[in-house]
Amino acid sequence: MTTRITTPFTATSTAAEVAAGIELSGRRAIVTGASSGIGAETARTLAGAGAEVTLAVRNPAAGEHVAQDIIAGTGNKQIHIAVLDLADQTSVAAFAAAWQGPLHILVNNAGIMGVPATHTPDGWELHFATNHLGHFALTTALHPALATAGDARVVSVSSSQHRLSPVVFDDLHFQRRPYDAHAAYGQSKTANALFAVEAAQRWAGDGIAVNAVMPGVVRTNLMRHVDRDLLAQFEASGAPALPWKTAEQGAATSVLLATSPLLAGIGGRYFEDCNEAEPLRPDNLHGGVAAYAQDPDQAARLWQVSTDLLADS
């Protein structure tokens, strides 16, 4: 039985607080989905610590706005914009092919949530295609750059909503079951957690640490497809209040995993509120990690299935 990892930081810690005193000069980072919300704050904090940061975004104009804001706020001019559409494997391949040199930090932050039933031209359900397969293809393509760095960190941003669904290998793309946006999102977030389990095991010998994080509940563009009436009903129902965080607090766990010496050599774990999550319990409605999201056999199966899907695309 492994020992649960804890740190001095908590749910209210900010990204700046967990990165205080950490020097990242000479280190290179990529943050996907960095044009707003948690991604932008993650990029801002890494830049503030001296890292060269590439904002991997679908909308270059939005990315440029964030980049200029980061440069103005940190004085770090090593901020770059690169177009990346995770739902488009051609875009993912082009982004990875253009990367030159080592990569020390990769934060797989981008995601979609609650979209109507949509499939890519390959027939992949859009949550799974974007949140998991896009990041899977990106990270595996960037493996040589991560291995060259010698001491690289990969952060796979999951969600407490992984509890809504395991990975349903018999029907990944909702071809035989009724489509449910919540289940689709949950499945993709379980996949994000399982990716960290298998990648950490495969790549430990390359000096690459891979972990999953639950950033917390933050009002960002990710929630633009969520039914506002449903959310209001939940909040008025008497259920335990959603533990809302600011974007600065939401980015803290990602930044901790990406930078902190406290977590050197740690891989394959799932973190929330700046500490390793405890096992899921019925009395914890907003935290904890489901056993199926940490299952090494499920993780290995997902890796093979993902590799096969990409090979056939």
Rank of each mutant, 00 (worst) to 15 (best):
L133P: 01
G101L: 06
A93Q: 14
I112G: 00
V167L: 03
R153K: 15
H80A: 11
A152Y: 04
V115T: 10
Q89F: 15
A145K: 02
S165P: 04
G75L: 02
I79A: 03
K77L: 11
A93E: 04
L86Y: 06
A110T: 13
H132I: 08
I81Q: 01
T130V: 12
D171V: 09
V167H: 06
E125F: 02
H80F: 14
L106P: 13
T140P: 02
T74L: 04
P121N: 06
A87H: 00
I71S: 09
N108Y: 04
T139L: 05
T118V: 09
H132A: 07
A152C: 10
T90I: 09
H104N: 15
L84S: 03
H143F: 07
Q89C: 05
N76C: 14
A98W: 09
T74Q: 07
L164N: 15
S159T: 09
I79T: 04
N76K: 12
G114N: 14
V92Q: 03
A96W: 05
W99R: 03
I112E: 00
G75E: 11
V154L: 03
L142D: 03
A149I: 13
G111S: 10
D88T: 11
A72C: 08
T90W: 05
W124N: 01
A147I: 05
D151A: 15
T148N: 11
L146N: 02
A98D: 13
A129E: 07
G73T: 10
H119L: 07
A145Q: 08
A94F: 05
I71N: 06
A152V: 05
A97I: 03
L84V: 07
V155I: 07
A145I: 13
H135I: 01
M113A: 11
S91D: 08
K77F: 05
L126W: 10
L103P: 07
A82D: 12
A82R: 14
I79G: 00
Q89L: 14
H143Y: 11
V157W: 12
F95M: 14
Q78F: 08
G134F: 00
N76E: 12
A96C: 10
H104C: 12
G123H: 02
G73K: 10
V107N: 02
A137S: 10
A96P: 06
V155G: 04
E125M: 08
V92G: 03
V168I: 14
F95S: 12
Q78D: 04
S156T: 13
V115K: 01
G114A: 09
F95T: 15
T139S: 13
A129M: 02
N109E: 07
F169N: 09
F95H: 03
S159G: 10
L106I: 08
D85A: 09
A149L: 14
L103C: 07
V157P: 01
A147L: 04
A117C: 11
A72P: 10
R163L: 09
D88L: 13
T140F: 07
H104D: 15
A149P: 08
I105K: 01
G114F: 06
G101A: 08
V168H: 11
A141T: 08
R153E: 15
A149G: 15
